[in-house]
């Protein structure tokens, strides 16, 4: 299979007046078409940094990233439009209605027209948000906001989705429900996805592969192929798979988290 996304020897350093921080070191990763990959790693190890580099938002110190064979540059080039990046919080614009929030990316990319409104309304309909299209973000629950943020990302029809802890703002119950919904949306739309998370169970339940990173500077410690014996896999069902515990323990040990 041809890799959609190819990361080669990626290293990233941050420079500030009083320090230099090495966030990512020599990272190599191939992501296949339609794959769901999770990245787990200790807090502050460089996960967001990796996503930002893929999205062309910062300049790597060295290394290259290819999407469909063409290189991603900084500042981001045409390739950017193929990437949908969902940030750590939903960042809905309070002053825009839900519909206008969803169309934001299209407006920026000058792709906004009658057809796209139709398409977006269909999507809102499908994911149960159509009746809220004229509401403002503060009138929505956390889970709904998260879905709106995802639809906003999907509206520009990216090839690859980058999700940065998409569920971290939600309470546990909502989190389970919303991750189920969002998983379904992503599979429906057939997107390649890279998700960053702190939550080991979440990473196993959603992904085809889990990438475990070391402490900063981020390097790949191990990659787990998640093979679960459940039919019609959904995140909730995955949690009941017999192999779930095995993966959980292995990744937990790998992360090597000490409470000091």
């Amino acid at each position: 299979m041809v890799a959609t996304l190819k990361i080669e020897n990626l290293s990233i350093k941050y420079h500030t007046l009083d320090d230099e921080t090495e966030a990512v070191k020599n990272l190599n990763l191939d992501v296949n078409d339609g794959e769901f990959i999770s990245i787990v790693g200790p807090s502050g190890c460089g996960k967001t940094t990796i996503l930002s580099a893929i999205a062309g938002l910062l300049r790597p110190s060295s290394g290259k990233i290819y999407l469909d064979g063409s290189e991603i540059n900084y500042p981001c080039n045409k390739n950017c439009n193929k990437i949908g990046y969902m940030l750590q919080r939903d960042h809905l614009f309070e002053w825009r209605s839900i519909l206008k929030n969803v169309t934001l990316g299209l407006e920026i990319q000058n792709k906004f027209n009658k057809n796209s409104v139709k398409k977006i309304e269909d999507m809102l309909q499908k994911y149960g948000l159509l009746s809220f299209k004229d509401y403002y973000p503060h009138q929505l629950s956390g889970g709904m906001r998260q879905r709106v943020a995802l639809i906003r990302t999907l509206a520009t029809d990216p090839e690859i989705l980058l999700l940065d802890e998409p569920f971290s703002a939600l309470d546990y119950q909502t989190r389970l429900a919303v991750s189920d919904e969002i998983y379904k949306i992503i599979k429906d739309e057939g997107k390649t996805t890279i998700m960053v998370t702190h939550d080991i169970a979440e990473s196993i339940s959603l992904s085809d592969r889990v990438v475990v990173l070391s402490k900063r500077p981020a390097q790949i410690k191990n990659i787990y192929d998640i093979k679960l014996s459940v039919e019609n896999r959904t995140p909730l069902k995955s949690r009941e798979a017999p192999e779930f515990r095995y993966y959980f323990n292995a990744i937990w040990k790998e992360l090597d988290i000490h409470v000091e």
Partner: peptide, 11 residues
């Protein structure tokens, strides 16, 4: 981060 969000769309 709102600015970053727009940059992800290539603003």
């Amino acid at each position: 981060d709102k600015i970053k969000l727009l940059q992800t769309f290539g603003a």
